Amino acid sequence: MLPAWLTKVSEPVLRATRAPSVDALQGELLRRWGSSEVWRLSYGLNSVIGKRGTDSQSGEAESYQKYVIPLGLPAPELIHSSDGVLVLEDVGRATLEQEPAAEGFLAAAELLAGIRSRRVDGPSGFPPEHVEEIADRIGRISFDLTPLTEALAALDRDAPLAVVHGDFVPKNLVTDGTRWTAVDWPLTYLAPHLADLYTLVRDAVALGHDRGPIVARYVDVAAADPFLVDRQLLVGGACFCLRALAFVIAEGFRIIPESKDWIDPLLSELEDLVEQLGRHRFVALRP
């Protein structure tokens, strides 16, 4: 069985796989949910990834043109895009979700350090005023977010802007046995925080791994100030929670009914992070 939308991109798929016809292709459904459907399309030893995205997942081609291609980010090659359907290089068959070894999380920290090393020009995709704007859309936050706004403003002055993948989690980290690649780039934006490292560590800890070695590997490879990284992690975690809550309210209820169960845990996580920021009351290091 093959996806119905394959007709939109059949020619580039056939060229890339060297298949004589669409009927000769083999299709393997890798992921399907409300706003994304991902297939491996293969002929013999040749394969590509076909992806259809809607709603929040519809901007991946734009992210490729704006960030991935110009910056040479470690992502699958974009072979073709048309009408919301992408044809991408097949970069491997194992994800960190499928093989969640400690070594994989350390490799992902190194991969992230490489992504963050690409210096970019603004504007930030998450300026301080964004905090209250998103909170207003969520409408369920009863605690004061001022510590987050202040910490983000200070971080804007103390840390350079860099690419935020936006969904740097084990299911989106793929290996071919030799190299690791980040896939799924539609949520990419620029910011000085480390939401990506936060989500990587968050999932690692949930699986029983230690936080320390992963953060230390990032600090070492990035040659970063560990105290600044701690701040970037707290701010990044809070920004991740805000964006996740906004997604659930705006889109999640409709495409992932069970996402309503994410709200209370995310609110608690956000409140804890904001409380930590309030205790530190970070100020800018530079005027």
Score class of each variant (00 low, 15 high):
residue 57 Q to P: 00
residue 108 A to S: 12
residue 101 A to C: 00
residue 118 R to D: 00
residue 254 R to V: 11
residue 35 S to Q: 07
residue 36 S to E: 14
residue 272 D to R: 15
residue 203 D to C: 13
residue 221 V to E: 08
residue 269 E to S: 15
residue 228 L to I: 06
residue 254 R to P: 05
residue 144 D to V: 03
residue 14 L to D: 06
residue 149 T to I: 05
residue 125 G to R: 08
residue 269 E to C: 03
residue 235 V to T: 08
residue 277 L to Q: 09
residue 52 R to E: 12
residue 210 D to V: 00
residue 220 D to T: 14
residue 99 E to F: 11
residue 257 P to D: 07
residue 223 A to N: 13
residue 229 V to W: 09
residue 274 V to F: 05
residue 236 G to D: 06
residue 117 S to A: 14
residue 221 V to D: 05
residue 22 V to G: 01
residue 149 T to W: 05
residue 147 P to N: 06
residue 79 I to T: 09
residue 87 V to H: 00
residue 163 V to T: 10
residue 78 L to D: 01
residue 263 I to P: 09
residue 160 P to C: 09
residue 226 P to A: 03
residue 6 L to I: 15
residue 267 L to K: 15
residue 9 V to H: 00
residue 225 D to F: 08
residue 160 P to Y: 02
residue 225 D to L: 10
residue 116 R to E: 04
residue 179 R to Y: 10
residue 250 A to L: 12
residue 260 K to A: 15
residue 218 Y to R: 08
residue 133 E to Q: 09
residue 64 Y to V: 06
residue 69 I to M: 11
residue 277 L to F: 07
residue 72 G to C: 09
residue 184 D to P: 10
residue 142 S to Y: 04
residue 193 H to M: 12
residue 184 D to K: 02
residue 51 K to W: 04
residue 59 G to Y: 10
residue 185 W to Q: 01
residue 156 D to I: 01
residue 211 R to E: 15
residue 243 R to T: 14
residue 140 R to S: 10
residue 42 S to L: 02
residue 233 L to V: 08
residue 26 Q to Y: 05
residue 210 D to R: 14
residue 92 G to F: 07
residue 132 E to G: 03
residue 16 A to L: 15
residue 182 A to Y: 02
residue 73 L to S: 12
residue 39 W to G: 09
residue 58 S to N: 07
residue 190 L to E: 02
residue 19 A to I: 13
residue 231 R to K: 13
residue 213 P to Y: 07
residue 102 A to D: 13
residue 167 D to K: 11
residue 270 L to H: 11
residue 21 S to M: 08
residue 95 T to L: 02
residue 25 L to Y: 02
residue 218 Y to S: 06
residue 71 L to T: 11
residue 282 F to C: 00
residue 281 R to A: 14
residue 168 F to L: 01
residue 173 L to E: 02
residue 240 F to V: 02
residue 252 G to D: 12
residue 284 A to P: 03
residue 9 V to C: 00
residue 3 P to A: 07
residue 133 E to R: 11
residue 208 G to D: 08
residue 75 A to T: 06
residue 287 P to M: 07
residue 38 V to T: 14
residue 51 K to Q: 00
residue 74 P to F: 08
residue 23 D to V: 11
residue 143 F to S: 07
residue 224 A to G: 06
residue 10 S to L: 05
residue 250 A to V: 04
residue 128 P to I: 04
residue 233 L to K: 04
residue 100 P to R: 07
residue 124 S to K: 07
residue 144 D to Y: 10
residue 41 L to C: 04
residue 55 D to C: 03
residue 132 E to M: 02
residue 1 M to T: 11
residue 29 L to A: 12
residue 152 L to F: 09
residue 85 V to D: 00
residue 47 S to D: 03
